[in-house]
Design a protein around this nucleic acid. Sequence first.
DNA 1: GTGAAAGCGCTAACAG
DNA 2: CTGTTAGCGCTTTCAC
Lengths: 340, 340
Amino acid sequence: MKKKVTIYDLAEMLKISPATVSRSLNNHPSISKKTKDKVFSAANETGYRTNKFAANLSKQKSNTIGVIVPKLNSNFMSTVLSGIEKVANNNGYNLIISQSLESEEKEKMNAKTLYDSGVDALLVSLANETTNYDHFHIYTRRNIPLLFFDRIVELSNCPTILIDNQLAGFDATEHLIQQGCRNILHVGGNLKRNVYRNRYEGYMRAMRKHNLAPKNAHFLETNLDLEKIKDVILFIQQSKNAIDGIFVANDTMAVNCIKELQKVGYKIPQEIKVVGFNNDPVSEIINPDLTTIEYPGYKMGLLAGESIISHLKGSINLNSAELIILRHELIQRESSSNTY
Amino acid sequence: MKKKVTIYDLAEMLKISPATVSRSLNNHPSISKKTKDKVFSAANETGYRTNKFAANLSKQKSNTIGVIVPKLNSNFMSTVLSGIEKVANNNGYNLIISQSLESEEKEKMNAKTLYDSGVDALLVSLANETTNYDHFHIYTRRNIPLLFFDRIVELSNCPTILIDNQLAGFDATEHLIQQGCRNILHVGGNLKRNVYRNRYEGYMRAMRKHNLAPKNAHFLETNLDLEKIKDVILFIQQSKNAIDGIFVANDTMAVNCIKELQKVGYKIPQEIKVVGFNNDPVSEIINPDLTTIEYPGYKMGLLAGESIISHLKGSINLNSAELIILRHELIQRESSSNTY
DNA sequence: GTGAAAGCGCTAACAG
DNA sequence: CTGTTAGCGCTTTCAC
């Protein structure tokens, strides 16, 4: 166990001052190339590693970015994170990731912990249950950049990245209508969250546009847990006017619905057409493969990372809130086909 | 922007010493309940937040754990991470996560960065391409706990967590044989990595046991990228003795193989039976649903977290390497059924 | 171009 | 039970 070497050690070795060592290591302009070289080679030889705590304590910044997501293990989230990590890493930032597990309480704690940990910025996708946003005040109050992605809330001056969920919901629903569906069920998520609320609104807008709402509109608010699928099946079986189309708020739920519906004898897409959301890989595995909305998660991650880092670096208009809307796209596959 | 308050401010307010404040905040036993209460309420009122850099600098530890994984966005990995995060969070540790993207170079950099960031411990699942392990020496040299999970390397005194991949590969293969397969193809991953090497060995062992190797054994080493599927299909189509069973080293690859095989006219499982690995959710979505090996990712994450944290806390036998082997299980489903 | 010295905020050994 | 004091290792003004 070799003991750690500090700038003082290097200074002593080279008969120069710690300040000069520090400046060399940080590539300060007013240091001669010669000394820098000396310092760097000495650093290499001795295996010097800069102590980030001391540096951070002194500089009051940490080069780390905090992230709070509802849960890590969904294809969408891990894809977004993958994008964020890529950008962060390329720019010399570390990522501290924590999950709220859809609990407001845990989200609060995470926000606090990350704040204490001295993150330079925070990226958040909200938990389903969150209704109070005070835990983010500590960030805004101290001008620590805060960005929401996907599941957002409109806080003053916080940039947000998302897709047009309303339009996406509209597109999905109108597609079903165009394929001949008349009694369409929307299996949605928690309406507290913009993403699910907007998808629902889009659904309703499409239904109204085609004079199907309110009569032929059916809505089930769920937490999108797979256990809720039996409710969906029951609803469909007990519905007076046969449901002939379903728009489900995510693909995982959608493919499992298809599976269950098939088990109880429904023919997809002949009797019921289905559209999902996210374009998860699983949407291409199900039979029939799933019509869905392409949601550019990786790109969202890259953008979130880039946006926050440019804030951090340039400190450009920290105060001008920005809203980035990514393009979504309807991907037509067999689950909504009418050419059978 | 409210300015930060330090223990000195609190000390001054309460007419006590900074040391007492610090001790109170850290719940030091030898402080009277009365003073503690005073300090805590003062802390709350002023919005005091402890500065982790100062604390870490002073204590020489960071309460963060570094993690390096090949990639975030696979079901297995994000599930493991989810488990690690849970434990870490419950124990007051932060997680810094980085991905190597299967590159040895990037893994090296990650290891360095995390080291510089002062992580108290490091959890690693190796990149496919890694052949040299020197970048972990800085950790072992300074007695920073280092744990490998899933994709491991045997470094002296490093605990490891994994399943018995050899046996799992054996089980998968023998199952195919018992289902009547004779010409079995193994679509494997990079043999540099223990997981894929051992699965391959298990496969071979089963084949030999039943006198099918070498004659009826067929192996394809791939990077498990979906692009490689066309090679698999080609191999099968051009094989002299018709392949009647496939053991694929992960489920994503397996389900996509099934899809493609079906497209070119093969009947699964009648003509070719398939076994995957991991028990990803997707294995239950494919039709026919996929026989696979249950791999307890979440549990692995929990254990990895617990193991490293107990090392950290108790500093119990830092030097006694431990090896945790989790139980796997063959899950029989339709893709290998012979009752058609 | 380089050095001296004063912090950054907290912890812990030592005293009392 | 509480106070004094000396760091932890680096950055950064202010001199020279």
